[in-house]
Design a protein around this nucleic acid. Structure first.
Lengths: 360, 360
DNA sequence: ACCAAAATTTGAATCGATCCAACAAAGCTG
DNA sequence: CAGCTTTGTTGGATCGATTCAAATTTTGGT
């Protein structure tokens, strides 16, 4: 039944239309991209031919090569793709990025992969005008990979110092100071810190030694902020445990076990992320400890969920959506310069923090 | 300072490297795409030249034209881009899509736009191998736009019948039946339905007339399911109000006002989405009506949030992530055929439904 | 009817790679 | 050493469009 030229035919090209309509391909191209400059009669003829032959319109693949601009920005991470839709912080960030992209009509390409090798390939072959990098972990590798593309890119939550890359972040020291000061002013004297990673793949109580050599400056800065506030408020910093988590449930719980095994457990917990803080609140509730009655908890990030948990979380709010918007604009309006921005944070006092228990 | 050839230079092409290394562009290409077939000495020479000239590696734009495959799937909607990160249903769906894409190393391109015109353009120019369409509203327009691209695409939540387009959906009639039957068996006799749109841009109580001519078959099918169960359980369907909402807070509240203004208010509400159901629960609580003490509420969709609200929502759960996975696979494994799948749903009984109050 | 100005159309060049048939060189075999 | 295989390299063709200077046709004025 099926003759060899029936369904086996390759896609119709603009040149085919031009031939069929008896015009040059230049004119055929104009019919689609600048219709106003071709004579109506010709325009109709070409359009009719296109219609008749089932032409899908100028193929963006071809146009792209000529035009150079993809009109899409890539957002990359080392986490699986679902991270963008699951993680509250990422979602808030994407909302800001989306807003900026919607405003200019740019698209968003999500880039990630199951393994390192595929990640590298996906970054090398992503069709985008620039990248926004979520540097949660393995950030330096992500930056290196992206740098090779020689496209504009901006790092978010960059955990290390490198003045050659554009980055947008927050004032971690000031934010942490705010959190610690808030608790100290409430009267707390016994603290514990649940930290983000100082380096990849390690957890547990950390020594001052480790802090000094911390790979991730974000983590280090927050710790510096906490301790600055402590000294300023006359808190004895000697016995304050700092437990390094991996910002997940398992390591946070392990940290809590360790911390509360102490003879003198803390009355206040400084968590370096809302994620950690919320796990802590849940853990404390399960142990029958009231928040903030027995233990106060202060988070960091200000994700929307923090306002919804029980009790609502006191936290250091980053302008997450604004960071996202600026990151997108940095790519969209790229001018060839390195741009490093540090935004301010804000202490949002909710119900998870209060005075220490009287008995303490 | 800056000589004219300093930073003003245009990007380095593969051909430049070839020239510099004294090989043909064919060989230069091989160095990057099939290094094993190039003699080591030559390979190193070319790589060195590339390094020296700051070559970014083969430009995907060029490769794409030749290769034809983008290795990314587009996900499109008429909502703003942030919809993908805000809406619980969309997020659950994206998680499924992400999973399938991660498994094959494919990327995801989010396609949307502020206005209709830009949407059309963005669909025409999206660099993807196929589309997954979120047909929430304006679904038919989205389908038409996409059809023109002549790429594989699959419609999700397709609100209308069209056997020529691939679609993945659920058995709405059976699901609705389950929900209504559950409430009838609990003893309820006075119902109200908060419906999804029957057509674009209208809200309010709907007549049987309108139902028959409903634009969206999904809405119609759910209603059919509800009423089938009612008759089967001997419920008098005469006075049951069916209020068409726009699946948002405002119209749902308006519907509730209308419904509860009645002399004989319902003891059970059938909501066609979890979104609507959760707004209803909130509204009832604010009015001092206990759920399920005074009024039972059953939703539809089974979004993750439904398990977390207070009280947890009884709902008809769709296999959302599975739909997403299948949609992605439909594009990734496209074989030129139209594929229409209908998946089963499941009633998940939680705390928002119970027997009607005794006094009623 | 004729010419300049304006409006259209043409076709070669370009974007940046990959593919492949043909060719060249080197290695083996009898 | 002719003949054959293996291995590596070449350069033209191709993917599908856009762009722009030059050629051509129309239009308008007199």
């Amino acid at each position: 039944m099926a003759s060899s030229s029936e369904s086996n035919t390759r896609p119709i090209r603009l040149a085919d239309i031009a031939k069929a309509a008896g015009v040059s391909h230049g004119t055929a191209s104009n019919v689609f991209s600048r219709p106003e400059i071709v004579r109506e009669e010709v325009r109709e003829r070409v359009k009719a031919a296109a219609e008749a032959m089932g032409y899908a319109g100028p193929d963006p693949k071809g146009r792209l090569l000529r035009a150079g601009k993809v009109n899409a920005i890539g957002v990359a991470t080392t986490e699986p793709l679902s991270y963008f839709f699951d993680d509250p912080f990422a979602r808030a960030m994407m909302a800001g990025i989306s807003e900026a992209c919607d405003a200019t009509g740019a698209g968003i390409a999500l880039v990630s992969a199951g393994n390192q090798e595929k990640l590298a390939w996906n970054i090398q072959s992503a069709l985008v005008d620039g990248f926004i990098l979520f540097c949660i972990e393995g950030g330096s590798r992500l930056v290196e990979l992206t740098r090779e593309r020689k496209l504009p890119f901006v790092a978010l939550e960059l955990g290390f110092d490198d003045d050659t890359v554009s980055a947008i972040g927050v004032d971690n020291v000031a934010g942490a100071r705010l959190a610690a000061q808030h608790l100290a002013e409430l009267g707390h004297r016994r603290f514990a810190v649940l930290a983000l990673p100082f380096a990849d793949g390690s957890t547990g109580l950390v020594s001052p030694e480790k802090v000094r050599t911390a790979l991730y400056t974000g983590t280090r800065d927050r710790l510096v902020g906490y301790f600055e506030a402590f000294s300023r408020c006359g808190v004895d910093t000697a016995g304050i445990p700092v437990y390094e988590t991996e910002n997940d449930e398992a390591s946070t719980r392990a940290g809590l076990e360790t911390i509360f095994a102490s003879a003198e457990p803390p009355t206040a917990i400084l968590a370096m992320s809302d994620r950690i803080a919320m796990v802590a609140i849940e853990w404390l509730a399960a142990r029958g400890m009231a928040v903030p009655g027995d233990v106060s908890v202060v988070g960091f990030d200000g994700v929307p969920d923090a306002a919804l948990c029980d009790p609502p979380l006191t936290t250091v709010a980053q302008p997450i959506a604004e960071i996202g918007r600026r990151a997108a604009r940095t790519i969209l309006d790229f001018d060839g310069t390195v741009r490093r921005e540090t935004l301010g944070v804000e202490l949002v006092v909710r119900a998870s923090s209060g005075p220490p228990p009287k008995t303490a």
